[in-house]
């Protein structure tokens, strides 16, 4: 990514990572926790889009849905069925939280694909909070529901006895790696795609390469549209899988 910029040299200037900068919207001051930044703006737009789809889209309450209501119902049904299928019937009462996660991520990802947009989900700070929230609540829930039986998740009774301590170690490590992989998967995918598009855009400055660059950007953009949805889906379904582990520990 950045290497390409330096090897090309000449008059080309690449700033593929500039799009991820967090800057205050008003003035150039320091970024405090309460400062209104581009993060604030794009998260507000995300909230507005969620409200527009889920509230305004379904305001007709029509028996025969219109376009917006169809999409809202489709999103509802999609996540509801995912929770029910993966986490089981008793997972359904956590459906609103998972719906919040899914809608936030999917709208952030797609809004980030707009030109000049800021992608909130490309920041590890954001995805780590999401992943840790899932990790901590799922772990706490597991202990509340099953007490120490929840630790049975790490004790593979199906394996021969001598293997069990080793498997337990592996299971514990994999359990604690979950939030790391969960967060970096989303942020990494978002960041990489946007950075690659930016690099291709930088090449467009050379007239001879620019048609190729435009084609490459178009192709990458198509891929990114796919990735934007798939990553939201993956994040959500993994959340459901973790929830299932908390509700039904033991393999």
């Amino acid at each position: 990514m950045a290497d390409a910029a330096h090897s090309e040299g000449g008059g080309l200037v690449f700033h593929p990572m500039d799009q991820f900068k967090v800057v205050p919207l008003f003035g150039d001051g320091e970024v405090h926790w309460y400062t209104i930044t581009n993060v604030t703006l794009w998260m507000a737009i995300t909230v507005a889009c969620v409200a527009a789809l889920m509230v305004l889209g379904a305001r007709g309450r029509a028996v025969i849905p219109g376009r917006a209501q169809s999409i809202a119902e489709l999103a509802y049904g999609f996540v509801y069925k995912m929770v029910e299928d993966v986490a089981g019937k008793d997972g359904v009462k956590y459906f609103p939280y998972i719906m919040v996660l899914f809608l936030f991520i999917v709208f952030s990802n797609f809004l980030g694909l707009l030109p000049l947009a800021f992608t909130t989900t490309s920041h590890i700070a954001v995805t780590a909070v999401l992943a840790l929230a899932v990790f901590i609540s799922v772990t706490v829930l597991g202990f509340i529901l099953h007490g120490t039986h929840f630790l049975g998740l790490f004790w593979v009774t199906a394996a021969p006895l001598p293997l069990r301590p080793i498997l337990a170690l592996i299971e514990v490590i994999s359990y604690f790696v979950r939030p790391v992989s969960h967060s970096i998967r989303l942020a990494g995918n978002m960041m990489a795609g946007h950075a690659v598009i930016k690099v291709f855009a930088g090449f467009a400055a050379i007239a001879a390469i620019s048609p190729l660059s435009v084609v490459a950007i178009t192709a990458m953009y198509g891929l990114e549209v796919l990735v934007a949805f798939i990553q939201a889906y993956v994040f959500t379904i993994l959340t459901c899988v973790y929830l299932k582990d908390a509700l039904h520990p033991g393999h």
Binding site: T37, V55, V100, I124, A125
Partner: peptide
């Protein structure tokens, strides 16, 4: 990487929580 600029973390986390709370309330 702007992602590793820790000075912006508090800001992002704060607004993320605000956004999630807003979405949760709406939903």
């Amino acid at each position: 990487m702007p992602q590793l600029d820790f000075t912006t973390y508090a800001n992002q986390i704060f607004w993320l929580i605000v956004a999630l709370a807003a979405i949760y309330w709406i939903l």
